[in-house]
């Protein structure tokens, strides 16, 4: 396992399966979510992201397996399990004929112990104070998105589930959301579960991502990787004046040409040695850098280049 955090997971998906008719929509999905983790749930449209989320919050039945939230089964102890969950499923659909405040009041009445003070606090937090007493039908999509987040965090959940939260947000809004979610996770210890098909977005937002395709988990990885060990070979790009000739000098190395650059598989020490060799041989070395594959590159590699979006 690349993940070895101690402590009991806040949420466990255990072999979650959904069969509709004869079609397996979700096929034995198992994932553990740790406390205070921003968790990305990635897959192409139709991969089963929303179906999984709906099962996690009890909107649709689970054919097989279970979702355990803070030790409570969503199937057998729904009311106890869901108490720890705040969510937006797909679009943040609120009662349009009520004001933002009335919407929050409505949800606050459904969980004991939410005071008016807490509502005010949340309104302040999401920055909707000026418009909170206006009817929701006058809100922009971004404002509805924020109100959606407000209703999801009103009862201080341990798990916050957001389905495609960046949909309809402008770049500024996305950035704010990103910072805010990271803050929630860090300061309040909330586990945030975010689904998206926007890989670059997830890469910036999440600590860890799982990738699903056709209802199956195909990858589960940490994003904020702890520094790669020095002894591990990586693909390193050298920008030199005569790349083709330089390649000949590096006989015996796993190396090649890439867009006019010279690439070599080498660990940290070898990189220094290669650099020395090139310089000794009279090449000009302008730049050396590790070729980081973006999540998107990795994703496309894994899903066999299937188009996302």
């Amino acid at each position: 396992m690349e993940f070895n955090e101690t402590g009991k997971p806040v949420v466990q998906l255990k072999n979650v399966t959904k069969i509709i008719g004869k079609r397996k929509i979700i096929d034995g999905l198992s994932v553990d979510l740790q406390e205070a983790e921003v968790f990305g749930f990635i897959g192409p449209n139709g991969a089963g992201k929303t179906t999984t989320i709906r099962m996690m919050v009890g909107l649709i039945s689970i054919t097989d397996g279970d979702v355990i939230i803070r030790g409570q089964s969503i199937r057998h102890d729904f009311e106890k399990a869901i108490r720890h969950v705040g969510a937006i499923v797909e679009n943040p659909e609120m009662y349009k004929y009520l004001t933002g405040y009335q919407n929050l009041l409505h949800y606050s009445r459904m969980v004991p112990g939410i005071t008016r003070q807490r509502i005010d606090e949340v309104v302040e937090l999401i920055g909707l104070k000026a418009r909170i007493h206006d009817k929701v039908k006058t809100y922009s999509l971004g404002m509805r998105q924020r109100l959606g987040i407000a209703q999801a965090i009103l009862h201080k959940p341990s798990l916050l589930i957001l389905d495609e939260p960046t949909n309809g947000l402008d770049p500024q809004g996305i950035r704010e959301l990103r910072d805010y979610l990271r803050k929630l996770a860090k300061d309040e210890g909330i586990t945030v579960f975010v689904s998206s098909h926007l890989l670059s977005e997830m890469e910036l937002m999440c600590d860890r991502v799982v990738i699903i395709q056709n209802g199956q988990l195909i990858d589960n990885r940490s994003i904020r990787q702890t520094a790669i060990p020095d002894t591990e070979a990586q693909r390193v790009l050298f920008e030199v004046d005569r790349a083709e000739e330089a390649l000949e000098v590096l006989q015996g190395q796993t190396a090649g040409l890439y867009q006019g650059l010279l690439w070599v598989n080498a660990d940290r020490e070898e990189v220094a040695a290669i650099n020395a060799r090139l310089i000794t041989a009279g090449f000009k070395v302008y730049a050396i850098r590790v070729q980081n594959k973006s999540l998107e590159d990795q994703f496309l590699e894994m899903t066999g280049g299937e188009r996302i979006v």
């Binding site: 969950v85 659909e93 209703q151």
Partner: peptide, 14 residues
């Protein structure tokens, strides 16, 4: 039809 059923049902109530 308004989709509000989703947010209504994910509360600690049967």
């Amino acid at each position: 039809s308004s989709g509000t059923i989703k947010l209504l049902l994910i509360r600690p109530w049967s």
